[in-house]
Design a protein around this nucleic acid. Structure first.
Lengths: 261, 261
DNA sequence: TGAATATACTTGTTATAACATGTTGTTACA
DNA sequence: TGTAACAACATGTTATAACAAGTATATTCA
């Protein structure tokens, strides 16, 4: 039995669908609240609730006395998408693939076991991969998983699928949270070989730990990007008032990896 | 004549003040909506509007049937504060200072002039500084400004004041937007000397361009962080529903430089 | 004592209604 | 023709009201 969503949620989804399907041009005005009330046969409270949510998510913006308009940007407001390598590549117009270097069970690593919140004597599943964009090596990464999650990977094709995808879509383990650390490192012999760099060349290192329900750690990954191909770009901008000066910083409008070919 | 703020705004500000002043512990439950209605002598619509805004800003979270609670994080929701080195240091509990290496007028630099959107033959003001946290070198940065803005710096004490501060607070030129690029680089002889590193060591490079009203570029800066002292940390987390799976990525809860001593 | 149930309380949803405030286009007047 | 006043319309604010749904606590019964 399917749970019926609330009315404001239905209205939101309907409008969201129309926007993402391109039925409205960026900047185009949505029907007035009154019209939406009549169309959906709901009260103005409900319509405004839906519009409020769409505004919070950055799909529309509103002007008093004028109307609600579809945002011209395709930025996902404060949503950050750096979860999936394949997705990143797709957006950059590159074909994503991976070269599996190794998939093996390894002895516990003190630092990693602590991060993953598992017993210090528990073995780990380790995945080493080179990540390719249209055939060119973009990044090298090593992923560690607790055995419970790690064993899910042994029957999967890791050259075309991302770990994120296997975990979340095939096994329906939702990734609800993650922490990321961005730093710089010198490529060692192993990494530089795979990224076709010289030993000692600077690489962009991203450490991340993804968590599922109950803050349970699913995997920890160290990824090394070739900085000539990848950098992270951020756009901050105050649209208008917000309030006062920049005592609170600027709202993040975009944060994404940028790829150079 | 002072403009009277709306009631829900007053309620929000009142609660916000109490939260930031520490009258509520993180995780502590706020009074129920009913109580807030009675206390502020407003309707439930108004109270809920205020709570909704506080929730959007990340100061509280709510649980149906239970109540509203003060967030334990001091994250500024989707506001990102990486504008000011001094501020960053203060939050890390370190004393901020700068060592001015050079402040000079230099010949146009093709790449920089293009970024700053000024004529290719226009000279630039260049500021080289070592940024210190409690006396230890944390970063080296070079800033280029168009002569108009640059000349404002010649009478200022750049060892204690940040450029951002001088521009925005003293000359009241608001910084409304900025773009940032995070990448990795090998420290050259010059940089490594100032950061007490070895030549070739990897450093975290942040390029940023700050803009004022009308998207006018105010300055362009290249900053090199010692990665053993500084990395950028990001926290993404879905509080609850949002909607469906993570097709849209995760909301950013925190993004800030992290300092190790 | 332990589990099921009832109850009170809390937030979530939705409708109706009135007025405030901002915008735009039209109309009337100089 | 140009401007000022006005009307129509849009979103913003706020109150009242009722019910839905989730949670916690007290109560009852086995």
């Amino acid at each position: 039995m399917e749970q019926q969503a609330s009315k404001h949620e239905q209205v939101k989804q309907h409008l969201h669908k129309e926007i993402t399907e391109g039925n409205y041009e960026p900047g185009e005005k949505l029907p007035s609240e009154k019209r939406l009330c009549d169309y959906f046969k709901v009260s103005r409270v409900t319509v405004r609730h839906a519009l409020q949510n769409l505004e919070n998510d950055g799909f529309i913006y509103r002007k008093q006395g004028v109307g609600a308009f579809v945002s011209n940007q395709n930025y996902k407001s404060n949503l950050v998408r750096l979860t999936d390598f394949a997705e990143d590549m797709r957006q950059a117009g590159l074909q994503s693939s991976s070269r599996l270097i190794e998939l093996k069970k390894v002895d516990p690593i003190k630092e990693v076991n602590e991060i993953l919140d598992i017993r210090p004597d528990m073995k780990l599943i380790q995945v080493d991969r080179v990540r390719l964009g249209s055939g060119k090596p973009i990044a090298f990464d090593t992923t560690w998983l607790p055995p419970g999650y790690g064993q899910l990977l042994f029957d999967e094709d890791l050259t075309t699928q991302t770990i994120y995808n296997i975990i979340e879509e095939k096994y329906e383990i939702p990734i609800n949270a993650g922490s990321y650390r961005i730093t710089a490192a010198n490529a060692n012999k192993f990494i530089s070989k795979h990224l076709k760099l010289s030993e000692g060349d600077a690489v962009l290192e991203i450490d991340r730990c993804s968590r599922t329900t109950g803050n349970k750690k699913v995997y920890f990954q160290k990824r090394y990007y070739n900085p000539t191909h990848v950098s992270y770009v951020m756009e901050l901008s105050r649209t208008d008032e917000s309030q006062g000066p920049s005592k609170q910083g600027l709202p993040l409008k975009e944060f994404s990896p940028r790829f150079a070919k």
